[in-house]
Structure formats: C-alpha cells, structure tokens
Amino acid sequence: MSDVLLQSLITGVTIGSAYALVGLGFAIIFNVSDVVNFAQGEFVMVGAMSAVSLLAVGVPFAVALFLALVIAVCIGLILEKFAIEPAKSATVVSTIIITIGASIFLRGLALLIWGKDFHSLPAFSGETPIHIGSATLTPQSMWVMGVTAVLVFLVHQFFNRTITGKALLACSANPIAASLIGIPVKRMMLFAYGLSALLGGAAGLLIAPIAFTSYDAGMMLGLKGFAAAILGGLGNPMGAVAGGVVLGVLESLGAGLISSGYKDAIAFIILLLVLFFKPQGFFGKAGEERV
C-alpha cells in the first residue's frame, strides 16, 4: 500500500510540476494584466510539437529544445501584440473569449501543421529507472522536477531581486502610476507573455517524453494549470506553483485509489470546491470589495 502511495506521489509531483509551470505562467500574466490567458496550455503543446518536428528534420537534440522554446516565446509575443493589446479596454468576458479564441486558433493551426497523430520526445537522459521499494522513479521525472525547481527559483529571484521583476509587479498594482514613474507598461506586458510562454514551452518539453503530445494536448494542461493558479490564489505566482504540485499529487492519488477514468474529474472537483469555499485560494489575499 505504501508503495502505491509512494508511486502516486512520484507521478503526482512529476505531472504536478508541469501544472505548476503552466499555473505560474497564468499567474504572471494575470498579475501584470488582469487577463486570464486561456491559451496558456497551447504554449505547452507548441513547445512539445515544435521539438518533435525539429528532431524529425535532424536538428541536434539540445538545439531542437532551444529552438522549440524560442518558437513558444514568439507565439506568446505574437499573441500579446495582435490579440491582447488591440483589445485593451475589453471587458472580462471579451478577454476570456479572445484568449479562448486564440487557444482554438493555435490548436487549429497545429492540426494543419502536425495532423491528428500522437507524438513523443525521447527521454533527456536514458530510460533506466531508479527503484525505491517497488516504486520507480524515471530519469525524466527527475528532469521534470529538477528543471521545474530551477525555473521556479529563477522566477522567484527575478520578481524579488531585479528591477525589471519589481517593475513587472508594479504594473499590476497600478498601471497608470507605473507608467507615470517611467515603467514601459506595454513592453512589460510583452515581457510577461514571453516569460509565461517560455515556462509553458518548457513544461511541454519536459513532459513530452512521459505523456504523449498531440495538437489538442494543450487544452487540458492549460485548464489544469489554471486550476493550479486558482488553488494557490490567482495573482500569487508561488501559490500557483504550490497549487500545481498539490493538484498533481491529489489527482494521481485519486487515480490510484478510485479510478484513472475520473482523474480529470478530480482536478475539477477540487477546483470547484476551492472556488466555492475559498475563492481567494490558499495563498491569496482575502479582501472586502470596496464600492
């Protein structure tokens, strides 16, 4: 029994790391622009699929990964420039529809380029698993957790230690004041989209060797990432990371103990419970709305 739990925990933290990266991207964009970017999951798909294609045409592994990230970032920048920025004064409902539209558009584009086939990347460094009791830990799982930890650490340092990072947070607190003191709000927005596309793309590369990827793989991952962000409290980047890991673990425990068919349902039931009973998330700030 404890081995089952341990295995669930390993699987959960691995997949939870991917949710954490996507959730972190959500939180960054929400923090800067008050927009919930429903296209976040597509960055994951674009990253993974681009790497698959680049490898197929003979690009060396490391270069392919790097170029795939560049492509994901470019998609993020294009999205901001041509879909979010022109609709700046849009209402919440409008931005939701725009970003869902962007997500569907990217999925449609992926369908045209890559078709409906499932693809996979080779593991970064071999397939020989480490045995812990009867549970196994694959090298790729370690890559996922390790790289996620490093990325989260870097983002955390970036927000707390660098001028640009602090400026980015200032944009969210008060965009008008931010522009008055000379922070280029427009460029900051672009930067936020680029950064969260980078995180999404990285998540895609990391888990592509474990989970298959296809043109529509981004949607579910994106939604789970959003659930992670809400779990942690929207607008709190580190909360989103914690939310992602927690979500991944609960999901894989649920899949192990109940049934894997209900795995996705578990994530969304948790999401609803959090929204109903603790809508500010577990790490967010509570506040009474002032009229």
């Binding site: 879909a83 609709a87 409008s94 725009i98 539209g101 558009f105 449609g108 045209l112």
Partner: peptide, 20 residues
Amino acid sequence: EDYEVLILGAIMMGIMIFLP
C-alpha cells in the same frame, strides 16, 4: 474540414477585437 477549428478561433478573436 481541417480549417474549421482554425476559423472558429479566428472568428472569436476577430469579433471581440473589432466588433465587440
């Protein structure tokens, strides 16, 4: 047929940006 998804997405963005 394969363009359906793409066009749906484009319509959603286009309408909201240009004809809210």
